[in-house]
Design a protein around this nucleic acid. Structure first.
Lengths: 228, 228
DNA sequence: CTGCATCCGCCTCGATACTG
DNA sequence: CAGTATCGAGGCGGATGCAG
């Protein structure tokens, strides 16, 4: 009954009173890619439990972070959209914790794409204006970039894209981590392009994630960490 | 035994695997103000419970976020310091959730000061270089500002400050929220200054927090929210 | 079928008591 | 001072039920 709040007059504590419970920020991550229905969220958040998702959505609605534009479907409110810098910042910090090689089934292309978008914005912006339509192993999402900012949504692009890129998930993660580049992937046939090839190459160059210090070599590891 | 992780190859999920449990980010907030001992943390985190604090510190140590420079005392590692932008971002988002009037006992001057520092950095930087020593109701902390960034630590300034400011907590929150300004507070005697008065006035102008939309007037309020 | 609510076992949390 | 041990209450995860 007595909702567990920190009761501190502090911005961080107040934010965590709303966002701090398990799964909450991950729900918002999914909704940041576009509106979704209850069952969409369930399938993208493996392990969450149906009751918990319902409870979180209700709480987020009450907090003014999420709303229901139509009867079936949840979306971020403007207040929820304002969370993006914070989620980006956390994601960039967490990126360095991830192992070099993802465990099978733990990767979703949009998650990597979100990270790359955040990274791009943090390092001076995309630099070019473009709309790119991705198909990564059948998963569709699209990016709208301008000089400083980039926006990422799932689903197919609702407008005509400048470039269309199709590849499988391993290729995409290889592109993301810089283990390969666009030119090479195209040459090997792993990446299929339609439209302005140079635009995509330009973007992917800015898209690259920073190298990670390998955690397994850190003192005190493993503690209670990762099991991807 | 099986530490509850999300198991997603996603920066945000990885960050939350380390930071997502209750109290963790608030511990880091405290350590971001400077190294502290176990009992210092206990007293600044009312309600945390001794076992939980010990467990969190152990986990954060294992994760490479916190370390113990000397036998009794915890501090952020460089990796922990890198969390500042993320904590700042969350704090700025959460600021707008706070009620205009804090409940008695729920305010700590450094929390407001942290928020002001984050706000200052986000809106173009302090603009001036200065070291300011604060004494707010007996609580000491100091700010080192340059054109773009600002650093805030608790305790008295270890170097000679350009300005020394002394006031009580209500005056400080009034300054923070813009309900009063430095000139007025000095004139009324609520704020005592030693040193370069104009420097402080300049800083405090950049220090002001944005106005908040009053939550209580929002649809769906109260849901499960604040009880400060 | 989607969108939950209910129930159940376990784990986390918070409070208190106790120890080196 | 700096934690560990213990225990009740509640949050979480999984399975199942059920209404629209």
């Amino acid at each position: 009954m007595t909702a567990r709040t920190y009761g501190q007059y502090c911005g961080l504590a107040a934010a965590l009173d709303v966002l701090g419970e398990r799964w909450t920020m991950l729900i918002l991550r999914e909704l940041a890619l576009g509106p979704k229905r209850y069952s969409d969220l369930l399938e993208r958040l493996p392990g969450i439990g149906t009751n918990l998702l319902a409870a979180r959505l209700k709480a987020l609605d009450a907090a003014g972070v999420v709303h229901r534009p139509d009867a079936a479907g949840y979306a971020l409110t403007p207040r929820g959209e304002q969370l993006r810098p914070a989620l980006d910042s956390l994601a960039r910090w967490g990126w360095e914790l991830l192992p070099d090689q993802p465990k099978a089934g733990s990767v979703r292309a949009p998650w990597a794409a979100m990270l790359m978008r955040a990274q791009m914005e943090a390092s001076g912006g995309p630099g070019v204006a473009a709309i790119v339509d991705f198909d990564v192993g059948g998963e569709r999402f699209w990016l709208r970039a301008d000089a400083e900012r980039a926006d990422l949504r799932d689903g197919p692009a609702p407008v005509r894209a400048d470039v269309t890129a199709r590849c499988d998930l391993p290729t995409f993660t290889a592109l993301a981590t810089g283990r390969t580049d666009a030119r090479e992937a195209i040459r090997s046939g792993a990446l299929e392009i339609e439209g302005d090839r140079r635009l995509l190459e330009q973007l992917l160059r800015r898209f690259r994630l920073p190298a990670r210090t390998n955690l397994s070599s850190m003192p005190g590891f493993p503690g209670r960490m990762r099991n991807l």
